[in-house]
Amino acid sequence: MSLPATTLAASPPQAAFGDTIEILPKIFQDDTNLAVMRRRLDPSLAAGVAAQLEEARRLDWRWRGGVGDALAEDLLGHLPRPERAGPLVEDIALICEAMAYLFDTETIGVRLQRLEGAMCPRFHVDNLAVRLVSTYAGPGSEWLPESAVERAGLGAPRPDKPDPLRDAQSIRRLGCGDIALLKGEGWIGNEGRGLVHRSPQPAPGEPRLLLALDPG
């Protein structure tokens, strides 16, 4: 799948926030590398999520394919408490359908993981075009506005590299339940402008449930 070419804007990349799904297409704008639909999980969805985390069981479900019934059935078969997972499965299926529609693709890569620690603790950019992330439990992903980034420090750490974080006070965090599109370095025309982000460190005994989607 090819994504649209963009022309680099003179201004630094920006973030767009809104309370409805209409905010997500903002990711196609040249000057936007983060689009976030803010939301709170409704009580039935939050209860279903909590049920999946009641037992300290490994959860690492992955899917690549279409977004129809087969996806929902496969997910349901991998959850620890399928009898209480209806709202969660429905929510993930709807997000997958929205992602497929937005990027005009029939194939979605999906990952739902229970995390006990930070998966990617160093600030970095993704080399892919775009990724959707949403945290169902625990702290949301952390990201940096451009003013707080030292891009020369990105990549594998070396003694001669600066810290990619210029200002620790500028670290931003997505909320639990937010749906966010992160534009990466692989988006045509976005080289050197991918969103800088990292995984948060959950508190001891506070598992994180993370959903990540890649189109195509």
Rank of each mutant, 00 (worst) to 15 (best):
residue 17 F to Y: 14
residue 18 G to P: 02
residue 20 T to A: 10
residue 21 I to H: 13
residue 21 I to Y: 11
residue 23 I to G: 02
residue 23 I to H: 05
residue 24 L to A: 09
residue 25 P to N: 09
residue 27 I to S: 02
residue 27 I to Q: 05
residue 29 Q to R: 08
residue 31 D to G: 01
residue 32 T to L: 05
residue 32 T to R: 03
residue 32 T to S: 00
residue 33 N to V: 02
residue 35 A to F: 05
residue 36 V to W: 12
residue 37 M to H: 11
residue 37 M to N: 06
residue 37 M to F: 08
residue 38 R to W: 13
residue 38 R to E: 15
residue 38 R to D: 11
residue 40 R to L: 14
residue 40 R to A: 14
residue 42 D to K: 08
residue 42 D to Y: 10
residue 42 D to P: 14
residue 45 L to E: 13
residue 45 L to K: 11
residue 45 L to A: 07
residue 46 A to D: 11
residue 47 A to M: 10
residue 50 A to S: 12
residue 51 A to N: 03
residue 53 L to E: 03
residue 54 E to D: 06
residue 55 E to G: 08
residue 57 R to K: 14
residue 58 R to Q: 11
residue 59 L to W: 00
residue 60 D to L: 01
residue 62 R to C: 02
residue 64 R to W: 09
residue 64 R to I: 10
residue 64 R to F: 09
residue 65 G to L: 02
residue 66 G to I: 05
residue 67 V to N: 06
residue 67 V to Y: 08
residue 69 D to E: 15
residue 70 A to T: 14
residue 70 A to H: 10
residue 71 L to P: 07
residue 71 L to S: 03
residue 73 E to V: 06
residue 73 E to K: 09
residue 73 E to D: 14
residue 74 D to K: 04
residue 74 D to A: 11
residue 75 L to S: 02
residue 77 G to F: 06
residue 83 E to L: 01
residue 87 P to I: 00
residue 88 L to K: 02
residue 90 E to S: 11
residue 92 I to G: 01
residue 95 I to G: 05
residue 96 C to P: 12
residue 96 C to V: 08
residue 97 E to W: 06
residue 98 A to M: 15
residue 100 A to L: 05
residue 100 A to D: 07
residue 100 A to W: 07
residue 101 Y to D: 15
residue 101 Y to M: 14
residue 102 L to C: 05
residue 102 L to G: 10
residue 104 D to M: 10
residue 106 E to Y: 11
residue 106 E to R: 15
residue 108 I to E: 04
residue 108 I to M: 14
residue 110 V to D: 06
residue 113 Q to T: 13
residue 114 R to K: 10
residue 115 L to C: 06
residue 116 E to R: 06
residue 116 E to H: 10
